[in-house]
């Protein structure tokens, strides 16, 4: 029941933040943006990731936002909740950028045992603005997560905390809406 409520809350939060961002784009002269992207995470294993960031451009170069997504590591689904900051190199429709995510991978199930953990991403990429309201981004980066999960010890009388350090490369593709 609790798990369902958390999931529902996250979904509501996801869409409310997105609609809030889109509503305010007009008011704030397109300072607000939405970045929706998918990526392939590779390394020890291959997995996919989906992220939505709703952010604000402080000036021609700096932007920051809040993000949420869905991803999977070792058979467990996680909602990454994170802060995204982005630096765009040029004030041009076609510009390199770099960005950093910092946040927490929240497990979607097994809350009693799966504790989730810190996540972070560093990326460099290209942003291509195709109009006033729409653009594309593509990037490559490094993805890190530190996930904890308790397992009942096979020797039978206590718990083992299993810690996974996720080290993945990331290829991401996404759309920017203003």
């Amino acid at each position: 029941m609790i798990i369902k409520m958390i999931k529902l809350t996250l979904i509501v939060l996801l869409f409310s933040v997105q609609s809030f961002g889109q509503t305010n784009m007009k008011k704030e002269n397109n300072k607000y943006y939405n970045l929706t992207s998918v990526s392939l995470l590779g390394g020890s294993a291959l997995s996919g990731s989906f992220q939505i960031v709703n952010g604000y451009e402080f000036n021609k170069h700096w932007a920051a936002g809040l993000g949420i997504g869905v991803e999977n590591f070792y058979g467990q689904n996680y909602f990454p909740l994170f802060i995204d900051s982005k630096y765009t190199l040029l004030d041009q429709p076609f510009s390199p950028f770099c960005s950093v995510n910092l946040g927490y991978d929240l497990p979607t199930e097994n809350f009693e045992r799966n504790k989730g953990g810190f996540m972070g991403t560093g990326r460099i990429g290209i942003q291509h603005q195709l109009g006033n309201h729409f653009g594309l981004i593509t990037s490559a980066g490094y993805r890190y997560a530190y996930i904890k999960q308790n397992e009942w010890a096979w020797w039978g009388n206590n718990w083992v905390e299993e810690i996974r350090e996720i080290n993945r490369f990331e290829f991401r593709f996404g759309f920017i809406f203003r």
């Binding site: 390394g43 020890s44 294993a45 010890a153 905390e161 299993e162 810690i163 996974r164 080290n167 490369f169």
Partner: peptide
């Protein structure tokens, strides 16, 4: 260069327990 960098991307698993 990218392949070289990314080839180092290996997950690590640790176990923390009382022993």
């Amino acid at each position: 260069c990218a392949l070289l960098i990314f080839s180092g991307c290996k997950d690590k698993t640790f176990q923390k327990y009382t022993a």
